[in-house]
């Protein structure tokens, strides 16, 4: 390990003492760079990309898919190239994205029981609860109970499919377009799409007065 990353040298009185995990991350990054596995530039580019993405990016993608059935078909079949069409190019270094569509018959919900795999390249960083042991265990054992806590009560006739992203794919849920939104513009539709409904723990929420009667 390089001397410059030795956490022992940080002075507590400076108020800048790094946590154990921050120091560990720095040490690992320094080692990876030292061994030529990646460059600091690559690390910075990935960090900048993740930090620049947020659920509003995912919401735009969902709203576009709702408005354009042909785009939706391409998004489900080949997310990476469909996203490129609308200006979201995912770097080759990011894990493959899979988009799963909620329908009247099937509702998807995403979890990573092993760690915190999440479509960061599109949605940015996951919420803290997504990474919690409570969510990671309850999402697989009692998904309907979790959804109830997010305000979604699904009928028994709807099949719940929980996706455990254990490996090389990251999942984005394409929620159902709410009824009564036929006259909304794409920008208005995007406002209905929350981060949580792209994880699948709930459905898009339509505020009073927005949907056509």
């Amino acid at each position: 390990m390089s001397e410059s990353h030795d956490g022992e040298h940080v002075h507590p009185e400076s108020g800048e003492e790094l946590s154990l995990y921050a120091r560990r991350a720095q040490a690992i990054e320094a080692l990876l760079v030292e061994k030529g596995v990646c460059s600091t530039g690559e690390v910075d580019r990935m960090m900048n990309m993740v930090e620049s993405r947020s659920p509003s990016d995912g919401a735009k993608v969902v709203a576009h898919a709702w408005s354009d059935p042909e785009f939706k078909a391409r998004l489900l079949a080949d997310p990476r190239s469909a996203l490129t069409e609308i200006g979201y190019s995912l770097p080759d270094t990011t894990p493959h994205l899979a988009v799963v569509e909620n329908t009247e018959q099937v509702h998807h919900m995403v979890v990573c029981t092993l760690c915190s795999c999440y479509p960061r390249a599109l949605l940015g960083r996951p919420p803290d609860w997504y990474k919690s042991f409570a969510y990671r265990s309850r999402a697989v054992v009692d998904p309907r109970g979790v959804m109830r806590e997010f305000g979604l009560e699904l009928a028994d006739s709807v099949e719940v499919q929980v996706l455990d992203s254990t490996a090389d794919l990251r999942y984005l849920v394409l929620p159902r377009r709410p009824t009564g939104t036929e006259n909304l513009s794409e920008a208005e539709l995007a406002k209905l799409v929350s981060r949580d409904c792209m994880i699948g723990v709930t459905d898009p929420h339509v505020p009073e007065g927005v949907a056509a009667s």
Binding site: D142, P143, R144, S157, E159, V160, Q161, V162, D164
Partner: peptide, 9 residues
């Protein structure tokens, strides 16, 4: 607790 059609993938 849920219906028998529920799945984990």
């Amino acid at each position: 607790q849920g219906p028998s059609g529920d799945k984990i993938l």
